[in-house]
């Protein structure tokens, strides 16, 4: 297990290899379809994500007493990853403009994102899909929330402080994608299984 602590430096991120199991600690912002669309439409995103992590997630949130003065009055009740591929068209530009170092989600992303990871020094992490309770427990505080009214709770940009959020490096900054190799090998096996006998 490799510990990653915010702010995530380019050097540390570039050292990661596909297949590494990592523990993410520090600042994570959630963002999914609506946030990416706003970004693509040229709308302002009033968040400085440089050196941080973007998490594809639509959490279940409940009102709560702020964990510390200045935190937001919310608690994450469930917060596993959502499917990342929907953000493929936007993510390379998002990485370039915002300077995020970690993209956390589910299912992997396409070659444009893999190239952006290599060029700008970022990695894609696979969180465990559906593991909402584990993820919720890793969230130590909700620091802020953006676009709550406009996007709704599942689509809003939640600024979270996480501790020991475990993920697998699925796409690294050397152009290696775990999904790609698994896909290639399984396809070959699949073809041999359905070949006429």
């Amino acid at each position: 297990m490799i510990n990653l602590t915010y702010p995530f430096s380019e050097d540390v991120v570039r050292e990661l290899k596909a297949g590494d199991v990592v523990s993410v600690n520090g600042r994570v912002w959630t963002g999914r379809d609506r946030l990416h669309k706003r970004f693509a439409d040229g709308g302002a995103i009033p968040v400085d994500m440089r050196g941080g992590a973007l998490y594809h997630c639509g959490p279940v949130v409940v009102p709560a007493i702020p964990v510390h003065p200045g935190a937001a009055p919310w608690r994450i009740a469930a917060g596993g990853p959502t499917t990342s591929m929907r953000e493929n068209p936007y993510e390379a530009a998002f990485i370039e403009k915002t300077g995020v170092r970690l993209i956390i989600g589910k299912g992997g992303m396409d070659a444009t994102v893999l190239a952006a990871c290599e060029r700008f020094g970022a990695v894609y992490l696979q969180a465990v899909g559906g593991a909402a309770a584990v993820t919720a427990r890793a969230v130590k505080s909700v620091e802020n929330v953006y676009f709550l009214k406009e996007f709704g709770a599942a689509e809003a940009c939640w600024e979270l402080e996480v501790e020991d959020f475990q993920c697998v490096v699925a796409m690294d900054a050397h152009g290696v994608s775990l999904f790609e190799s698994v896909q290639r090998e399984s396809l070959a096996r699949f073809k041999s299984l359905i070949k006429a006998v």
């Binding site: 279940v60 596993g80 465990v128 559906g130 593991a131 909402a132």
Partner: peptide, 26 residues
């Protein structure tokens, strides 16, 4: 990584059951 994923899933199952919270956010 398969091991890590399955262990996380089992941890998640136990946590959700004990707390009565959704197993998955969807």
């Amino acid at each position: 990584s398969a091991c890590m994923v399955l262990e996380t899933i089992l941890k998640n199952v136990a946590l959700a059951r004990a707390a009565g919270t959704p197993l998955c956010q969807d």
